[in-house]
Design a binder for these strands. Structure first.
Lengths: 125, 125
DNA sequence: TATATAATTGTAATGGTTACATCTTGGTAA
DNA sequence: TTACCAAGATGTAACCATTACAATTATATA
């Protein structure tokens, strides 16, 4: 039950939520939900390749149900994480001869359009 | 003193060491060294753009004195982190119109040449 | 219904990191 | 030299995301 709700929520958002976000979001719906369940479920989803685990430069992990290869942009001011497309297949690399690449991660940082024009936001690093 | 030794060690290695690695490596040389100093110094180095903070899919941060844009490959079996060259400037992206990109991070995962031919290694995720 | 297995929960421990107060070092001026 | 100040370094304790573990609840199958 919790398992299905978590997957549903994850596939229905592009927010790249943290465990805390998922937990507090689903708590009203599932009052018995525990954080341990959220952790455990996400671990299973990642193993089953139904979700991707993202380590941005934060102390909290994020999760993404979009399993296809794409880039992530994290706004240093508002902290929001955006998806973007990147042609990683045709990226030229040197020094990976003999390596077996299983997963590619592309992370950009900077300021998102909203924060670039908004001077009022607090800088969150 | 500690500050200089830490920077020297970092610039002289391609191991992408963790705080623990730096600490235990320099302890014989600086018996009074504390981990707090290592943390603090690395924070300063990153702010001064003399080092880069790397968040691989681990629970420990890694540090790299190579500040230029390049990719990082982490072997899922032995845990070692390798550098590789990648032409990030000519990478085609879509969906970043209006974004100000300040930093680019490219992280690959898989098996390194040594681990691919070595069946004895323990899998470390 | 009974029973086995999977799913969920709660508590406590783990471990990297940070806050904070203290102590030491190095340089500068009188 | 001595006094003094600021930067550098240290140690302890707190913080917090995550994990381990044991116990409880739900689900399915015979």
């Amino acid at each position: 039950m919790a398992r299905i709700k978590i997957l549903e929520y994850l596939t229905g958002t592009t927010d790249h939520p943290t465990v805390e976000m998922i937990y507090s979001r689903l708590l009203p719906e599932i009052p018995t939900l525990s954080k341990t369940t959220v952790y455990k479920t996400l671990e299973l989803l990642v193993e089953a390749n139904l979700a991707r685990l993202l380590h941005m430069d934060e102390n909290e992990a994020r999760f993404d149900a979009n399993v296809s290869d794409h880039g992530h942009f994290r706004c240093s001011r508002c902290g929001k994480v955006y998806d973007f497309e990147a042609d990683l297949d045709s990226l030229e690399t040197k020094g990976l001869e003999g390596f077996a690449v299983a997963e590619k991660n592309l992370i950009f940082k900077g300021s998102c359009p909203r924060c670039r024009t908004d001077r009022s936001g607090r800088i969150r690093g």
